[in-house]
């Protein structure tokens, strides 16, 4: 782990008040991202990953109740919101809808520099062109004149990544950046992120429901379930010896291209508890084959270890 973290999240809690009680999207999440480090967040849909990202960026609707602390080292007072788009940037899940349809790529990219860096239009366009070339767009000057619908999904995601990097952010929050893309394009985008992280020395918070996506890039992986962190470990250690049964189940469910083709894909029966659901014990207890009476009664405390691993389980898998 790096010495000085760019991002520290402490006991973050996100609730959306609504009819029939508040929906708890994120519950007591703590994590940190070091300078230049790539941290992966993994979890099923509905585990609160996107809500966590939006909370970090200050992009949640004003009705959301947010508790806990988010400190971003690059911002005065630690508020990411103030340096959004400049020191902390975000790439979204669906490149099909994340670009404004009626504006040319050039206009959408250069406005970032015009706003944050007070660049002239011409200088901003030139910087945008150079950044498009860096992310591997074949005809960057031509791309600037295009509308989003004239580009393929992979190209659009590259444009979005290029756009987020224009101001040289210290942290890139990438929320499922490859989910909407073809598998081959997925690999290209992940490679691009890895290269940019090295070149720009930028930290990445890489969020995915897909362990394989995170595995190649992240040094540390945080596993989320039902809005909570259930386990965190260095990537290598997590794959080779998961301690939380949920992590183990996730790994078991990931299709393995190297091994024999199973007659039936491994699945995890049941569903995660809804965000509006209340429960007393461990959120995973209902689906866990190791669960006991105690799991259903008492929430397991988070236990941290010296090797950077932590997990919340009453009856962890043996190390």
């Amino acid at each position: 782990m790096s010495a000085e973290p760019v991002l520290v999240v402490e006991d973050l809690r996100v609730e959306h008040p609504g009819r029939g009680g508040a929906v708890e999207a994120v519950r007591d999440v703590s994590l940190s991202v070091g300078a230049g480090e790539c941290v992966g967040i993994v979890g099923e849909s509905g585990s609160g990953k996107t809500q966590l990202c939006l909370a970090l960026m200050g992009l949640l609707p004003p009705s959301a109740r947010i508790d806990g602390a988010v400190r971003f080292a690059g911002a005065p007072g630690g508020a990411a919101r103030a340096v959004r788009g400049e020191r902390i940037a975000m790439v979204f899940q669906d490149p099909q809808t994340a670009l404004t349809p009626h504006l040319r790529i050039g206009s959408q990219m250069s406005e970032v520099l015009v706003h944050h860096r007070r660049s002239s239009g011409a200088r901003a366009r030139e910087a945008a062109r150079a950044m498009l070339a860096r992310v591997g767009i074949p005809d960057p000057a031509g791309c600037l004149r295009r509308y989003p619908h004239e580009l393929s999904g992979g190209m659009r995601q590259r444009v979005l990544i290029a756009m987020s990097l224009l101001c040289g952010p210290q942290l890139l929050v990438a929320d499922e950046p490859t989910t909407a893309l073809d598998v081959t394009v997925q690999a290209q985008v992940l490679e691009l992120l890895a290269r940019l992280r090295r070149e720009q020395r930028m930290a990445i918070l890489l969020v995915s429901h897909d362990l394989a996506v995170v595995a190649g890039l992240a040094a540390r992986i945080v596993v989320m379930y039902a809005g909570r962190v259930v386990e965190e470990a260095p990537a290598e250690a997590l794959f080779h010896g998961p301690r939380h049964p949920y992590t183990a189940a996730l790994i078991a469910c990931a299709p393995n291209a190297d091994g024999p083709i199973p007659a039936r894909m491994a699945t995890l029966p049941g569903q995660p508890p809804g965000a509006a659901e209340r429960f007393t014990g461990c959120p995973f207890a209902a689906r866990c084959d190791r669960s006991s009476e105690r799991c259903r009664r008492e929430p397991p405390p988070m236990t941290a270890f010296d090797d950077g691993r932590r997990f919340a389980c009453h009856d962890p898998l043996p190390a």
């Binding site: 960026m57 788009g85 979204f92 994340a98």
Partner: peptide, 22 residues
């Protein structure tokens, strides 16, 4: 509420620009 307006917010643009331009 659309995704591209959220992108515009994530870019740190002022509300005026987001409303009028995007």
């Amino acid at each position: 509420r659309s995704a591209y307006v959220r992108t515009a917010f994530a870019k740190g643009l002022p509300l005026r620009t987001i409303v009028l331009k995007h």
